[in-house]
C-alpha cells in the first residue's frame, strides 16, 4: 500500500479508537443548530427562511472545531518527523490527513444535517441540495482548514488563531453552500451553485495540499 493509504488507514484506526472527535463535532453541530430557535423564535416561517444558512454556519464551525488536532498531535509526539522522513511526498501525507479529518468530521456532519434540519423546519425541497452541497463543501472546508492548521503549529493560542485565519477563507463555500439550499427551497436552478462548489473543491484539492506541505515543512524546521 502506498504511503498515502498507510497513513490514512492508521489515522482512521486511531479515530475509531478515540471516536470522541467525531462525536464532539456532531454534538457541537447539534447544540449550535438547536440554539437558533431559542434566539430567533420557534415560528416556522422565520426558521424555514434561515434554515439553510444556519445549518451551513454551524456545520462550518463544527468542522473548524476539530481542525486544530489534524497535525497538532503528530507535531507534539514527534510522529510528524517520522512521516516527513518516510519518502512519501508531503502533499500526499497532507491529503491522507485531510481525508481522515473529512471522514471523522465531514461525513458525520452530512449524516447529521438531515436529522437536524426538521428542528429548523427546512422545507422538503431543501434536503437534496443541502446534502449535495455539504458533500461538495465539507471536503473543501477540510482542505482549506488544513492550511490553517499547519500554519498555527507551535503557535501560542493556536485554536483561536486558526479560526481567525480560516473563517474568511470559508466565506465563498458558505455563500454557495447556502445558495444551493435556497435555490432548492425557492425552486430555482440548484446546479449553478453546486457547480461553483465543485469548482472550489477542485481548486482546493490541487492547491491546498501544496500550501499545507510548505507550512508543515516550516513547522518541522
Amino acid at each position: 500500500m502506498s504511503g498515502f493509504g498507510v497513513i490514512l488507514a492508521r489515522d482512521l484506526k486511531l479515530a475509531l479508537r478515540q471516536s470522541g472527535d467525531s462525536l464532539t463535532a456532531i454534538g457541537f453541530f447539534a447544540i449550535a443548530t438547536v440554539l437558533f430557535p431559542f434566539g430567533v423564535g420557534p415560528e416556522s416561517e422565520i426558521l424555514a427562511r434561515i434554515s439553510g444558512g444556519v445549518l451551513w454556519v454551524t456545520a462550518l464551525l463544527a468542522s473548524l472545531l476539530s481542525l486544530e488536532r489534524v497535525f497538532a498531535t503528530d507535531f507534539e509526539d514527534g510522529t510528524l518527523d517520522q512521516l516527513l522522513l518516510s519518502g512519501t511526498p508531503v502533499s500526499l501525507i497532507v491529503l491522507a490527513k485531510v481525508v481522515a479529518h473529512w471522514a471523522t468530521t465531514g461525513i458525520p456532519l452530512i449524516i447529521a444535517a438531515p436529522i437536524l434540519a426538521p428542528t429548523l423546519h427546512l422545507p422538503a425541497s431543501g434536503y437534496g441540495p443541502l446534502l449535495a452541497a455539504l458533500a461538495l463543501g465539507t471536503p473543501t472546508l477540510s482542505l482549506i482548514g488544513a492550511v490553517g492548521a499547519a500554519l498555527v503549529l507551535g503557535a501560542r493560542r493556536g485554536g483561536v488563531l486558526l479560526s481567525l485565519l480560516v473563517l474568511p477563507l470559508y466565506v465563498p463555500v458558505l455563500i454557495f453552500g447556502t445558495a444551493a439550499v435556497e435555490a432548492g427551497i425557492t425552486d430555482m436552478a440548484v446546479r449553478p451553485p453546486l457547480l461553483v462548489l465543485a469548482g472550489m473543491f477542485v481548486l482546493a484539492l490541487t492547491m491546498a495540499p501544496f500550501a499545507t506541505a510548505v507550512a508543515l515543512r516550516q513547522a518541522a524546521q
Binding site: R10, D81, L85
Partner: peptide
C-alpha cells in the same frame, strides 16, 4: 527522507 532514520528527543509513537 526515505534513506534516513531519525531518532530525536520525541519518540514519535502513538
Amino acid at each position: 527522507g526515505a534513506r534516513t532514520r531519525f531518532v530525536g528527543h520525541l519518540d514519535g509513537l502513538k
